[in-house]
Write a protein that binds this DNA or RNA. Structure first.
Lengths: 131, 131
DNA sequence: CAGCATCCCAAGAGATACTG
DNA sequence: CAGTATCTCTTGGGATGCTG
C-alpha cells in the first residue's frame, strides 16, 4: 500500500488534506478496518480472522496483517508450539484510531439515504451507470 | 471507484467495519480530499482546482469531480458563456464530512512519530523495504 | 476553458497449490 | 496452523491530444 505522499511545499489547505490522507492511507485498503475491528476484541488467530473477515483471501489477509503490524497498529505474538499458534492484537494506537473513525461512521449513517438519493438523481439525469 | 460493499448478512462487528468503509469509499481515492477541501472555501473553477490540487492529472480531476458530484458531495454550476465557466462547490454534506475527518487528522498528528518509529523498528528486524 | 478519448503502466486484489 | 509463491485479472492512475 502506497506511502509516497510527502506533504512538502504545498499550499496551506492542501497540507491539511495531506495530513488526512496520512491517516487514510493506513486504513484505506479494502480489508484493514475489518481486521482491525476483529482484533480489537482481544487476541485473535490467523484462521479465525480468515473466518470473521468475510470474503478475504489468504493472501490479502497476510499482506494486510503485515502492513498493519509494520505501522504499529497490530501486535503479533508467536507461540512456538506445534501446530503453530499466532495471535494478533490491536495496539492502543489502533484502538484510538477506531474511536476517531466513529465520527466518520456516524456521518455515513446520517447521510446514507442522502447519498443514494443523490446517486439516483445523477444517474437519472445522465446515463444510468450501466445502460 | 468501487461500491460493491453491500454489508449484508455478516457478523455484528463486521457490520460496523462495513459502515466505516461506506464513508471511506467516498473519500478513499487519492484526490477526493484535496478537491473537497479546495472546494470548501467557496466556488472554484476547473483550472483553479488543477492548479491547487498539486500533481493531479486532467483525467483524474475530471473523474474524481464526477464521482463527488454523483455522491452529492459537490455541486456543479455551469455558466453557459464562451469560453465556458464551470464552478464546483462543496455541499453541506461534504462540509460535515470534513468535520468528521478532523478527528482522524488529529490522530494522524498525534501518532505520526509513533508510526514511523514502528516502521523503522519493523524494517530493522525484518528485511529493509528495499534491500 | 472544461473535459472526453485513448493508450499505457503499476498497484491492488482473487484463487490456489505448496510447505515448515 | 500459518503462512509463502505464483499466476492472473481488475482497478487506479499518469500522460496527452483533441474538441465544443
Amino acid at each position: 500500500m502506497s506511502q509516497g505522499n510527502r506533504c512538502v511545499s504545498i499550499q496551506a489547505d492542501q497540507a491539511r488534506a495531506c495530513t488526512v490522507r496520512e491517516a487514510l492511507d493506513r486504513v484505506g485498503g479494502k480489508w484493514s478496518i475489518g481486521i482491525l475491528i476483529a482484533a480489537s476484541q482481544g487476541p485473535i488467530r490467523f484462521t479465525e480472522l480468515e473466518r470473521q473477515v468475510e470474503g478475504i483471501s489468504r493472501r490479502m489477509l497476510t499482506l494486510t496483517l503485515r502492513n498493519l503490524e509494520r505501522d504499529g497498529l497490530l501486535h503479533r505474538q508467536v507461540h512456538p508450539t506445534v501446530p503453530p499458534r499466532v495471535e494478533y492484537t490491536a495496539t492502543p494506537m489502533a484502538q484510538e484510531l477506531y474511536e476517531s473513525l466513529v465520527a466518520l461512521t456516524r456521518w455515513a449513517e446520517r447521510h446514507r439515504e442522502g447519498i443514494s438519493a443523490a446517486r439516483a438523481a445523477y444517474d437519472r439525469e445522465h446515463g444510468a451507470p450501466v445502460g
